[in-house]
Structure formats: structure tokens, C-alpha cells
Design a protein around this nucleic acid. Structure first.
Lengths: 196, 196
DNA sequence: AACTCTAGCTAGCGTTGATAGGGTTCCTGC
DNA sequence: GCAGGAACCCTATCAACGCTAGCTAGAGTT
């Protein structure tokens, strides 16, 4: 039985190697240049091996995206300060969100631009994505003040996502991100105007 | 000379035919299924004819996108009510923006998702996009209240764009759009709290 | 009427994602 | 220790992609 286990372990390792390599290549040269041939070359296997692990190329992107969502959820969790006001907490998480997207643009793209989840219509939203949304809702909750925390979280998330994608597409300058986040945070925390 | 003019007119017609057909096909089956062969078939010309009009396929998408931006700018302009408060004006334009994106998802994708403008690095932002941004700034201006209208406009635009793309990717439900827009508008107009 | 030039076609190149089928290697059971 | 069988991975190939070269036919010019 130990032989069988070794095989399984090796397969699992290769599975992860494919994902890590795909992510690396995407960050280096963009997803367009991650072809099945070049990816297979880089892991030093032949092209069809990829299809033993994943149904198709989209499935690889999807798997990378899922790992990214898990990572993002934990980053957001870690960014929430233990003390301080709710507005500062929101601003801190906002910075963490945009910083994550700026640090790993290809990963972010896989998560929320390429892997739109349209085709998997009947499936529920994947758990890692729900975790990210829950984390956002957690940090905006204290600022709701009568507003629906869920809707508030959706709006916050949308604004962050819009900032990130428009900045990534060079429609907004990277330099202005912080100023925009400050304005956004202040606006959404409006029920408690700045103590002068 | 009239013969030459006729040729030019025919070329211009075909130019527009290509763009209109590409847009149609994209809305019907998505940009992935708009291939140069199928597009050429549909306009009843051979594939290389496309390359007389456009440098490559991306240039076609880009041209469609530019037309879309012009259209969006005028839609936003028309949506701004002549009378009423600034908050109502913002909400009206917000609805127009999201409705446009929902009505023409493939067009919107060409405008602000696919055609990211990254590759045309040194070029300035195209005028139609500047027009859209100016239109947004126009409607948020009266709500600035000391805030930088430009930054405010960028944040508003980002939030709308995020809502649109997350909704289009089935990450947010289409049904909640209006509620989200109301919350967003109220938050951004915070310096003037609702007269009770 | 002969010439030129342009426009659009057929054919093909290199690359893409994905699959089929043959061989080789390794494990299992006798 | 060995034969049978299963798992595995590679070579070769497919259809479709974006794009280009080169020819042909027809229009415009002189």
C-alpha cells in the first residue's frame, strides 16, 4: 500500500507544481502567454499530462483563482486591526485588498476577471469567495448604522474591485489609490462624521 | 473623381459593417466566439479583407470599444435630469450607467475589460473615455463639498464599474443593483444628510 | 484598346487547446 | 523470481485560431 500512497503523493505534488508554475508564469508574462505547451515544458512534462490533473486549461486558471481567493481572505482577516475604530479598520482592510491586487495582478485577474463563473451557472458561489465576502461584511458591519450590512459590503467590494481593475487597466493612476480609498471610506462611514 | 469617391464610400461602409457585425456577434455569442473567420463569413467577405481595415483583431475590438464609449458618454449626458437635486441627478446617471452595461454586456466588456489600454502605454487616454469621465465629474461636482471632484468622480466610476463587472460575472445578483446604487449615492452625498 | 493598379480571393504558416493510441515502466500475485 | 496486468506518460495528430503571401481578375487611366 505504501507504493500506492507514494504515487498519490507524487501526483498531488505535481498537481501543486502545475498550479504554482501557472501562477508564476502568469505573473511574469500574463495569462495570454501561459499556454499548455509552455506550462508543460516548464514543469518538464509533456503537454497531455496537464489533462490528467485538470479537465482543460480553464480549470487550471480556476484552480489558481481558488487558491488566490483563499489567500486573499486570510490577508484581509490579518489586516483587520485588533484595536481602533471601525473606520480605521475599514481603511486598513481596503489598503490590504488593493495592495494584494497590485502585488499579484495576474492572480487577481484569474480570481475575479477571467474566472467569471458564468459557465458554472447552477453551482453556488465557491466557498473561498464567500469567505472573502464574509470578511468584508465583518469589517463594514460596525459602520452599517441601519443600512443592510450585506448590501453595504457588496458596495464596498464593488468599489474596491472597480478601483483595482481600472487601475490595473491603466485607466486610473496607481498613485491616487490611497486618496481614493480615503474618500471612499469616509463617505461610507458617513453616519459618524469626523470628530473635529 | 466620383468613382474614387464611391470606392472610398464603399470602403467606409464596409468598415462600419465590420464593426457593427463584430458587435452583434459579440453580444450574441461572446467575444470568444468572434473569430476572424466567422466574422468574415458573416459580412460575406474573405478573412484577409478584415486586415485591410484593421491592423489586427484587437484593433477591431478597440474600435468597437471606442464607439461604445462615445455612446455611453451621450447616454450619461442624456440621463442627467434638467431639474431636481444633485443627489437625484447622480442616482439617475448611476442607473443609466449600469443599465447601459447590462443592456450591452459584450460592448461594455470591450470598452473597459478587454481593451485595457495597457499595450498602448505612451498614448493618452482616448478622448471618448475622457468624455465619459468628464460627464461623471459633471454630475458629482455639485456633491463634492470640499472634496476633490476629480477624485470623487474616480471613486464613483470605480464603484459603478465594480458593480457592473461583478454583476456581469454572476458574483452579484442583478436584482440588487438598484438597492446598491441607492446606498452608494446616499453615502457619497453624505455632506448633505437627507432632509427628514 | 492597351496598360496599370488595386482589391479580394485561395492557400498556407505557425501556434493554440485538446485527444488518441502505442510503449514503457512499475506493481502485484503466484 | 517471474509473468501478467495495470497505470502512466510520450509522440503524433486534430481542428481551429490569427495572420500573411502571392495570384487573379476587374476596374480605372491614358
Amino acid at each position: 500500500m505504501t507504493a500506492r500512497e507514494r504515487r498519490l503523493r507524487e501526483q498531488a505534488n505535481r498537481h501543486q507544481l502545475i498550479l504554482a508554475t501557472a501562477r508564476e508564469m502568469a505573473e511574469e508574462e500574463g495569462w495570454d502567454n501561459v499556454t499548455t505547451r509552455r506550462l508543460a515544458d516548464r514543469i518538464e512534462y509533456s503537454q497531455p499530462v496537464l489533462y490528467q490533473h485538470f479537465k482543460n486549461k480553464d480549470a487550471i486558471v480556476h484552480a489558481v483563482a481558488t487558491e488566490g481567493l483563499v489567500e486573499l481572505a486570510s490577508v484581509l482577516r490579518a489586516a483587520r486591526p485588533e484595536s481602533g475604530g471601525p473606520r480605521e479598520a475599514l481603511q486598513a482592510v481596503a489598503r490590504a485588498y488593493t495592495a494584494f491586487a497590485a502585488r499579484w495582478p495576474a492572480l487577481y485577474q484569474a480570481m475575479l476577471v477571467l474566472d467569471t463563473g458564468e459557465e458554472r451557472g447552477d453551482e453556488r458561489e465557491p466557498q473561498p469567495l464567500l469567505d472573502v465576502m464574509a470578511e468584508i461584511q465583518e469589517v463594514v458591519g460596525p459602520l452599517a448604522e441601519g443600512r443592510d450590512p450585506r448590501v453595504l459590503a457588496e458596495v464596498v467590494w464593488s468599489a474596491w474591485h472597480g478601483l483595482v481593475t481600472l487601475t490595473g487597466g491603466a485607466r486610473l493612476t496607481e498613485a491616487g489609490t490611497d486618496e481614493r480609498l480615503l474618500l471612499l471610506t469616509d463617505a461610507l462611514a458617513h453616519p459618524a462624521p469626523q470628530p473635529a
